[in-house]
């Protein structure tokens, strides 16, 4: 049981690292828009390509061929 004296401080160090990481992510604006990101994962792949592609955006497969 004496291993607790080593393991608990290690756990605390990891906890501090996790908090620091999270605070950094929040500070860099990654959590500023929670609504969009929650929705984006459900949208078509095109949505993520749209923001990165420099060429003409590919059209969604379902559309474009309509009458």
């Amino acid at each position: 049981m004496d291993s607790l004296y080593l393991l608990i401080p290690i756990a605390l160090v990891f906890c501090v690292i996790a908090i620091r990481l999270l605070l950094w992510a929040i500070g860099s604006g990654q959590y500023d828009d929670l609504d969009k990101e929650a929705w984006r994962i459900l949208a078509d792949d095109d949505a993520s390509e749209a923001s990165s592609s420099s060429e003409q955006g590919r059209r969604p497969p379902a559309a474009g061929d309509g009458p």
Binding site: A38, W39, R40, A50, Q56, G57
Partner: peptide, 16 residues
């Protein structure tokens, strides 16, 4: 709504 962001991002990406 969130779909507006999709629409805007998509149509902006389509501009040369």
């Amino acid at each position: 709504c969130a779909a507006c962001t999709w629409l805007v991002e998509q149509s902006m990406a389509a501009i040369r």
